[in-house]
């Protein structure tokens, strides 16, 4: 099946000779919810910039639903909607005007543009503010305005660069729901985020980019399977003065009512409960200490850092 996005040997060297992308290959399937993760300066925004033609590539081939962004740019651009990291709308214009004008740039007639603008502004909770100067909107509203603007021409591929940065958790979750809904309706979504929990809960496939190269490109399930150790936090009813000894499980006493237990791949959590029960310690709640994806992410980026720097300090 034709991918929504296909990238072959993509390279970008900026004017100051900084090599942001060192020949990446990436395919994103139609209908996918895809995470592109990486530390700051890894090449995520450069990749997105090239996809939406704000950055000129040095070398390589990018096709969107089979349309080459160089040879068939008009058709390719019709398929893409982009939500950039920074606010990039005229802060003196009104949300409704911004959306209708954006539709006009895609050749959409004003009456259709206005009805779509109403649809997306309502869905994103901005309809009541449609005639206010955009500068007066809150940060979260401005982010939602950029999502509405990216959707106004109903693209089949939506690219979001840190869409929930600086957004409070309640709003972030409502935006997740909205994006899931868009994805369920068939829109392919590519997401970059610093909130790894966001990527883990939304995305089916993932690529990790670092120092301009793809260090991992797999499904979220396959990636999480690679996790060989997880730390759980257990809250216990009894007050403990020292950490209990559990055979095969390293345990740390955090405070009198809280334990940290490391569980490696293949071990069973049930055994922990059985052993604690034998010691007359009752668990009242349990949670994972860290986001699982976060642990893997740091492992991979750290490993890549060692590979790139040859294990040398880089000061």
């Amino acid at each position: 099946m034709q991918p929504a996005l296909s990238i072959k040997n993509l390279r970008k060297t900026y004017d100051d000779q900084f090599e942001a992308l060192k020949g990446i290959d990436l395919d994103v399937a139609k209908g996918d919810f895809f995470a592109l993760l990486g530390p700051n300066g890894a090449g995520k925004s450069t990749t997105i910039g090239i996809i939406c033609s704000l950055v000129r590539k040095t070398e390589g081939l990018v096709t969107i639903f089979g349309h080459d962004i160089d040879k068939d740019f008009s058709a390719a651009k019709q398929f893409v909607g982009v939500v950039p990291q920074e606010f990039n709308f005229n802060q003196f214009e009104k949300p409704l005007d911004i959306l209708v004008a954006q539709a006009g740039y895609y050749g959409i007639k004003a009456d259709i543009a206005r009805s779509r603008a109403e649809k997306y502004l309502r869905q994103l909770g901005l309809w009541e503010r449609r005639n206010e100067i955009s500068r007066t909107l809150s940060g979260g509203m401005k982010r939602r305005l950029m999502i509405a603007r990216a959707l106004i021409h109903e693209p089949q591929l939506l690219v979001l660069d840190e869409p929930t940065a600086g957004v409070d958790i309640e709003l972030r979750r409502s935006m997740w729901e909205f994006l899931k809904q868009i994805n369920d309706q068939g829109t392919t979504i590519i997401l970059t985020t610093h909130y790894l929990e966001e990527a883990e809960s939304l995305c089916r496939n993932i690529a990790i980019i670092d120092h301009g190269t793809i260090v991992k490109n797999t499904s979220m399930k396959a990636l999480l399977k690679q996790l060989d150790r997880e730390t759980f936090i257990l809250d216990v009813r009894e007050e403990l003065s020292e950490s209990p000894k559990l055979e095969g499980y390293p345990v740390t006493l955090v405070d009198g009512h809280c334990l940290e237990v490391d569980v490696t791949k293949g071990q069973s959590i049930n055994e922990i409960f059985i052993e604690l029960n034998g010691l007359n310690i009752h668990v009242i709640s349990m949670r994972s200490k860290a986001n699982r994806l976060e642990e893997l992410f740091f492992d991979m980026v750290e490993k890549n850092l060692v590979d790139v720097d040859g294990g040398q300090d880089n000061e």
Binding site: L54, F89, A101
Partner: peptide, 18 residues
């Protein structure tokens, strides 16, 4: 220049407008 400064020129640059 105002569009460049506020970066809303990108609205046009990402669109298929020639």
């Amino acid at each position: 220049f105002g569009s460049k400064f506020q970066r809303n020129i990108e609205e046009l640059l990402v669109s298929p407008t020639p």
